Amino acid sequence: MKKILFVLAFALLSCTYAFAQHFTVATYNLRNDNSTNDDSLHGNGWKQRLPVVAKLIQFHDFDIFGTQEGLVHQLNDLTKAMPGYAYTGIGRDDGKTAGEFSAIFYKTSKFKLLKHGDFWLSTIIDRPNKGWDAVLPRICSWGSFQEIKTGYKFYYFNLHMDHIGVVARRESAKLVLAKIKVITANEPVILSGDFNVDETSDSYAVINTSDKLKDAYELSPLKYAESGTFNAFNAEEKSKGRIDHIFLSKDFKVTRYGILTDSYRALNKTTQKYEAKLPSDHFPVMIMVDHK
């Protein structure tokens, strides 16, 4: 009898494992390509970083991921450099192509985009504007996705909160939770973004202590996070706080969490020496999730 029970238990576990599906999720602040900054003078211009960013994403095999700060030409550059990916999102400045996006990229062979939308982080959500004490317009883009292989459906929300407005971040967190409740009708949800605050912030707590979403960092049994997520293009410094986050509804099981501190070597034309460079001023956060 014990042998029979053991065989049955093993068979049940095997079936559960066989039916469990997994995919990788990430969030990545790309650093905008802005002619007013001096990134290019220091070897950190978009044209210099693009090949590395594209290869990093493909090497780590992101299945679906949120981006922040990308301008339309940057997003199009990535699409060309990464065959098999598409994105959804709009520019925050005009609701079309102007300004930074909070775009969501996904593998077209793995996911089908069913619905999508966007709203501004403000008291006026349907057109470009600045909310509360924010100094810039901020936008959240979302999509309803279906995993092609399994038919599994989930929602993905991605945002970039204001870097100055304390009230704006707190109210934006409340707004996002309210919109998720209305839009998703209790279906599985992923929320990613650059929240511009670490895990000690009250706006972070609004989301992480809600009954809907939880920080993937806390849920993961395996954490590879030897640094914070902001690096200021300095490969020699180690930051502490995590300001880029991925939150999940209870429908997902996190198996791995990582802050990817990949660097590369590039020639400094002034010193004629190779030095450590970073693909962006943020490190990407990547997780692996299981679902049934």
Rank of each mutant, 00 (worst) to 15 (best):
N76L: 12
V53M: 13
L78S: 07
D133L: 06
K107I: 10
A98K: 15
Q68G: 10
P51E: 12
C140L: 14
G99M: 08
W120R: 07
F119E: 03
P83A: 07
I148E: 11
K107H: 04
N129A: 10
I124Y: 00
T108G: 01
I104T: 10
D63T: 04
S144V: 01
G91N: 09
K115D: 13
P128H: 03
D126V: 04
C140S: 13
T88V: 15
K96Q: 13
R138P: 11
S144E: 15
A103N: 08
Y155Q: 05
V135P: 00
Y106T: 06
G89I: 11
C140V: 12
N129C: 15
N158L: 03
L78N: 08
F62N: 05
F59I: 12
G89C: 08
K55D: 14
V53G: 02
K55W: 07
F145D: 00
G151W: 10
K107L: 06
I164W: 09
G91K: 06
D133K: 08
G117A: 13
V167L: 12
D118S: 15
K110L: 13
Q74K: 02
A81C: 09
T79A: 08
R49Y: 07
V135Q: 12
H116E: 13
V72T: 11
A98I: 04
F111T: 07
T88Y: 13
G165H: 03
I125N: 10
Y155V: 04
K96D: 09
I139H: 10
S109D: 14
K110C: 01
F59C: 05
S102R: 06
D61A: 15
K115E: 15
V53N: 08
K115C: 00
Y156M: 01
K115S: 10
M161K: 00
V135I: 12
V53K: 07
V72M: 08
F154K: 01
E147R: 06
Q58V: 00
L121V: 11
G151S: 06
V166M: 13
E147M: 03
M161V: 01
F62A: 13
H116F: 07
G131Y: 05
D118G: 02
A98Q: 15
L78R: 08
F65M: 04
I164H: 06
K149M: 05
E100C: 07
M82W: 02
L71M: 14
L75A: 05
D77T: 09
D61W: 07
T79W: 00
Q68T: 07
I124R: 02
K107F: 05
L50Y: 11
F105P: 00
T88N: 07
N158C: 03
T88R: 11
V167M: 11
F105H: 09
A134H: 13
Y155D: 08
Q74I: 05
L78P: 06
K130L: 08
W142M: 01
L121M: 12
V52H: 15
Y106K: 09
L71A: 03
Q74W: 10
G143W: 10
H116G: 04
F154Y: 15
N76K: 14
A98D: 12
H163K: 02
G66R: 11
F119L: 10
K112C: 00
G131L: 06
G99Q: 11
F154N: 04
T108P: 00
Q146E: 15
L113S: 07
Y87I: 09
R49I: 05
L113K: 14
V53F: 02
L56I: 14
